[in-house]
Design a protein around this nucleic acid. Sequence first.
DNA 1: ATGCCGGGAGATTCCCGA
Length: 255
Amino acid sequence: MKLATWNVNSLGVRLPQVLDWLTANPVDVLALQELKLTDEKFPADAFTAAGYHAHWFGQKTYNGVALLSRTPATDVIKNIPGFDDDMSRVITGTVDGVRVIGAYFPNGQEPGSDKFEYKMEWLTALRRWVKEELAAHPKLVLMGDYNITFDEDDVWDPANLEGTIHCTEEERYHLRALIALGLTDSHRLFEQPAKSFSWWDYRDAGFRRNRGMRIDHILVSHALRPSVTACTIDKTPRKNERPSDHAPVVVDLVP
DNA sequence: ATGCCGGGAGATTCCCGA
């Protein structure tokens, strides 16, 4: 079983690339973030034709998430129960016995800003809810655009970016607290190339110079951890014309 | 040079992302 996450930065623009990628990488589950379109504009027919069931939770201009799967997802939930939020950031479903949470974590903009405070509140609410989901569904995957780096290995210039957004101690505390619920970072279960990133700024030739960060993660529960055989970042679509600024991350599970 | 690129809204420039 292969599961993947990809922030596509506008599904309206990126749909052809997503379909091409699925043809080349027929994963069982794909979580998408930053659809940037309303529900009625979601291209459900294109995904049906590609052999995928889809659930989506759109929003105009910003945010928006979807969950695609080869077999139908059940028990689908949108956003974080009990957390009032006017942004579409989370979609959850059970696929082939695995509870899959796809999430677009808040950016936070700048430490100390209102958006940063919202990010902290959102992270607290997410953790409370994921704890409950884990208790109910031991086989769980939490994947998406976390907008948080674990440590300096996830940052192209850690000295200069220390304490800036995605690299603050407050954000990393929340990421470690998610791990402490009983989750593991799939990426670091395996040897990875040095300076493995999942996002590169469009500006200043970020991708060509590998000036990026690893902020897209696939966390797996302890019950699934022994099943994980690989975790890779696919930089191929970042080389497309008009690419997303994020690359897909893929995890392989054996039954 | 995060005033740098790119998407969206919708207006001829802005907000936002990371």
